[in-house]
Design a protein around this nucleic acid. Sequence first.
DNA 1: AGTGGTTGTCGAACCGGTTCGACACCCGTC
DNA 2: GACGGGTGTCGAACCGGTTCGACAACCACT
Lengths: 348, 348
Amino acid sequence: MVTIGDVAREAGVSRSTASYAFSGKRAISAQVRQRVLDAAGRLGYTANAGARALATSQTMVIGLLARFLEDEFAPAMLQYMLGVSDNARELGYDILLVTEADGARALRRITDSRMVDGVVLLNVAHDDVRLPVLRAAPQPGALVGLPGDCTGLDVFDLDFESTGRLMVDHMHGLGHRELLLVSQPEHVATRGGAYVWRLRDAALERARALGIRLHAVFGESSQPDIGATLHALLDAHPSATGLLLNNEAAAAALPSVLNARGLDVPGDLSVVGRYSDEFARSFSLPYSFVESAPDRLGDLAVRQLVRRIGSTQAREEPYVVRLLTPEFADRGSTAAPGSRRPRGTGRS
Amino acid sequence: MVTIGDVAREAGVSRSTASYAFSGKRAISAQVRQRVLDAAGRLGYTANAGARALATSQTMVIGLLARFLEDEFAPAMLQYMLGVSDNARELGYDILLVTEADGARALRRITDSRMVDGVVLLNVAHDDVRLPVLRAAPQPGALVGLPGDCTGLDVFDLDFESTGRLMVDHMHGLGHRELLLVSQPEHVATRGGAYVWRLRDAALERARALGIRLHAVFGESSQPDIGATLHALLDAHPSATGLLLNNEAAAAALPSVLNARGLDVPGDLSVVGRYSDEFARSFSLPYSFVESAPDRLGDLAVRQLVRRIGSTQAREEPYVVRLLTPEFADRGSTAAPGSRRPRGTGRS
DNA sequence: AGTGGTTGTCGAACCGGTTCGACACCCGTC
DNA sequence: GACGGGTGTCGAACCGGTTCGACAACCACT
């Protein structure tokens, strides 16, 4: 293994001079700097990350804590992971991926041992057990997902309440008066998935205010159960004209359910989902949707985290809670109720 | 920050004694060991990972290089990532996740700087540019995916050739004489995705040997294009009675395509896919399939990698190329051709 | 009592970087 | 010709662990 000492010897300078030649933190004459750089190139030198971390107390690594919980839809989570990973790398940070079931213990492990300069938590629950650990950690952290108590934390999430209202308002504006809402499994909600009831409650309240009947149910996150649930829901409320989805698995299952029932969208039923554009492409979802913006959230979280890592004074700044305004991506799957168009061939 | 020196002082021993009390690499009296452990608990001591890495030349981190290429189906890749991550953690290793587009450069970065003890490469191409870098690296590496040249590497993959033959044999055994095969995009194959033509060529050859007509096409990996391709394929070969899928996106799109055409499986068409069980659940795929076993491959790759990391003598052992025998998961989507059963209600 | 072998502990060196203080040198200036 | 201020380089200390050699204390034997 070639060390900075080898480079220094090859260039005929001291170790400290070699170090300064690389970092530029002190003035070094052009010739000497070039001699050092040449020597480094000749020897194939790369600084040892562990040694540098020890000396500088900076690892240039960010911990990414993902939670793959039962009853949650893994493909959706991937988008958030990539959103964080790609943006971190752009800022010069590597990603330590943690997928352990016991997130709190894993978080303590990587922060206490100083493996990371900071941490991003995904899929944050209302009363997330990882939060006390994060608050006690010496490194800063950023959250993707809104917990009940945000004190001492930078938080980024989609505004699920506005999303619920937006969905209802949109349908109401088109003339719908009876809607269906499929949320994630109740189990996910009771476990602390606050986004479930944040959207749901807001939608129910707005529906009440507008005098709309809104039938809200929880749906499975696995196939084929969710398909059966969708069928049952449509059976139970034949007069409903609009369907709202806050459940990626339900969205993925919907095309074949509608196909089986011979229902036309938006002629027989207007549909609005909530997922990411990338997700829609993978799952062939032709519905209008509210963009969940995982790449955007990853970008915001990493950027803020790196700000705090970088300067001690940034670490003193007030914490931010940023809820993204939902954006409606129109794919033409909503229309005035009862505006059935001639059925297509199914082939476009 | 509390160091081992603080613990030693608190326990009234030297730093080296404290170190030995933790590692157990020398005999330490029971009382002293307990004093050290108590002191560590009282002070909340955790060893600094960078310092330990520097001293031991071991980081206890494995690099995971994923490639999210254009025209490839991201949700399928996630299964492989989790397969590696979960198994690595079980063996005491953390995961450094690398998703950079320039995999060769990233690989050089993390190996040269000694951030990782070893590396797992996912989605390996036939002539993968990362392989020369890996061979030159001082750390061992393991591959998930079979390249053209395996010398000096431990390689794990599904046996795609056997898979292709198995699919054809299975259909032939049921009496099918005209089949369709949908592979990944041709672009993926020409770029070096060897698994594409390994399965395809083997299937074509076996079909020829058995006197079966096999129409093999490449299909898009994005929606909704792949759906249109499936429709066109079924239009072009109305007499084909069996469909083979080596394309996750095609599998995901198939239910609604068949639904739109009013085709019954296996009455009108027998179907066999190639994906993972987990994937089938997420995407609601009711078809028989050959298990791609991402968890198993991750397990094998990590286990072999850790073996080589652990002992210098294991590093001398001959390299292994392990191709998993394909396993057929029967979901009842194949039958003798023309054995149309009464159509279901689509609800079951 | 002297010898030899364990057992338990310590001090010092080392891993490979970074950083601070010291200082030699060169320039222009009074 | 002494003086002051940059500029460029070096030596030493430090980051926080691990590990090796030395050695004291203790035991059992002859």
